[in-house]
């Protein structure tokens, strides 16, 4: 059994508890950075998608897992971020400007959507955010200068200076931003503001009576969560190369919510795990008909009970199944499983 005795207060807030996670983090970083030299760009695109989803999940988890609010409209923020970045890039702004602007504009809308959260709770708030998510795509679809419902192509970033292939440079860009945001989020959760968020989740009466301004922190939570979604939206646009309002539909918002529930509500690690697993499942389940025997059975089942020739529905059935199982058996999600495995390993053989 490995037991670590802490000797000073800084160890309580350090990024890594001891050498073991440092070692594995270095291994993971090395793997991520070496990857483009060994695999086809198809796998890079999967990792990019995972990263972008992870950024949204990090933000949504701050709002839902940490602050105890709800948003069924996060795809709306992603759309706002994406379209902001595209507009500015088209106008000739450099990446850093359009990327930051995507975050800022989404944050403003986030704060705006936060206003109902001051009065509404639970299902009422859910409906308000749902309406927002739906409205955003409809409004964008009506704006001709944004390409309307037909969509708009995204100009490529000038990443030639890296001397690498475009896909590879974009991959590095997205990975680095994701890592930085993950570290920031983890610090945030350990900080006074992060704790204030959790206080609001557990008891808003107690939170206010110890001096937490509910209005300020709820709005901050919505704003911050939307910022993540906006930033992710910008990256997503550059990654896709072409965006239209249908990319940001209601299902996507639900998908984000499912991601953090599967990953583990209120855990930074959970957001990452959820994004990796859910993205992977979504991609893999679309090819489920290729699986021998099982594939054709599922195809028959899908045609009999669900929409005709719409096999992608199957992936939703599985996603739903996973969600139900997680909520029933491991409410802390994948991260909860990870914590349990870690505890078992640390305290072995007891």
């Amino acid at each position: 059994m490995r037991l670590k005795l802490k000797q000073d207060y800084f160890e309580d807030i350090e990024l890594f508890e001891d050498r073991v996670p440092i070692f594995w983090s270095v291994v993971l970083l090395g793997f991520l950075f070496a990857l483009p030299f060994f695999v086809k760009s198809y796998y890079l695109t999967i990792l990019m998608l995972m990263s972008v989803n992870a950024i949204v999940a990090l933000g949504l988890n701050l709002l839902v897992g940490n602050t105890g609010q709800i948003s069924l409209g996060h795809a709306g923020f992603v759309a706002i971020g994406a379209y902001t970045a595209v507009l500015l890039t088209k106008a000739g702004a450099p990446f850093i400007v359009s990327f930051a602007a995507a975050g800022v504009v989404a944050a403003l809308f986030g704060i705006l959507l936060g206003v109902p959260s001051l009065k509404l709770e639970g299902p009422y708030l859910a409906i308000a955010t749902l309406a927002f998510g739906l409205a955003v795509t409809v409004i964008i679809g009506r704006m001709d200068f944004l390409g309307g419902r037909m969509g708009v192509s995204v100009p490529k970033l000038s990443l030639k200076w890296t001397g690498l292939k475009y896909d590879t440079s974009l991959y590095y860009l997205i990975i680095i931003i994701t890592i930085l945001l993950t570290i920031f989020t983890r610090n945030f959760v350990k900080s006074r503001i992060g704790r204030a968020f959790q206080a609001i989740r557990d008891s808003d009466i107690a939170a206010s009576s110890i001096g937490i301004n509910l209005t300020k922190y709820k709005l901050l939570s919505f704003g911050l969560s939307a910022t993540y979604a906006g930033l992710a939206g910008a990256l997503w646009a550059f990654y896709l190369g072409f965006i239209s309002p249908t990319n940001f539909n209601f299902i996507l918002s639900i998908m984000f919510l499912a991601t953090i529930v599967v990953g583990g509500l209120g855990f930074v690690g959970g957001s990452i795990m959820g994004a990796v697993v859910m993205t992977f499942l979504n991609i893999q389940l679309e090819n489920i008909t290729d699986v021998p025997i099982l594939g054709s059975l599922i195809e028959k089942f899908s045609e009999a009970f669900m929409m005709h020739s719409a096999i992608s529905n199957v992936s939703w059935v599985f996603t739903g199944l996973i969600l139900i199982l997680i909520v029933l058996f491991e409410p802390m999600g994948l991260y909860g499983i990870w914590l349990r495995v870690k505890l078992y390993w640390k305290t072995w053989p007891f």
């Binding site: 309580d12 704790r195 204030a196 557990d202 008891s203 009466i205 107690a206 939170a207 110890i210």
Partner: peptide, 15 residues
């Protein structure tokens, strides 16, 4: 009215 899903030390830190 405690912050039930947080540790004792986090509850006190919130103070």
């Amino acid at each position: 009215e405690l912050f039930a899903h947080m540790t004792t030390i986090d509850n006190l830190l919130l103070g």
